[in-house]
Amino acid sequence: MSIDNSTVKKVAKLARIEINEEEETTLITELNNILGWVDELKQVNTDSVEPMLSVFNESMQMREDKAESNFENSQILDNSPESNSGFFVVPKVVE
């Protein structure tokens, strides 16, 4: 298991995090260390072990289908860096 430049670049892109070259170099070392360390799990025998999705073992509570309106448009937009006419605004999305 080893992470190289292109993996770090690819993962950073997937996570939408801009990293400079210096960060990239540090991350390669750090991620390799961390992943090397968690690699010891490979030695644990997990044949026929079911993955544990949650420690919560009560059934899921369901909600009645009732519409509510708890927030105004102004509240929803209040924290946004850019908004206009009730919309959030982002740089043009090209499809």
Binding site: R16, E18, N79, S80, P81, E82, F88, P91, K92, V94
Partner: peptide, 22 residues
């Protein structure tokens, strides 16, 4: 950086994501 919180100046959407989070 779209609905709340810090937003970095950016030319396009991808730049917005990566710089804001970076």
């Amino acid at each position: 950086g779209i609905r709340y919180g810090f937003r970095h100046n950016a030319d396009d959407l991808n730049d917005l994501y990566q710089k804001t989070r970076g």
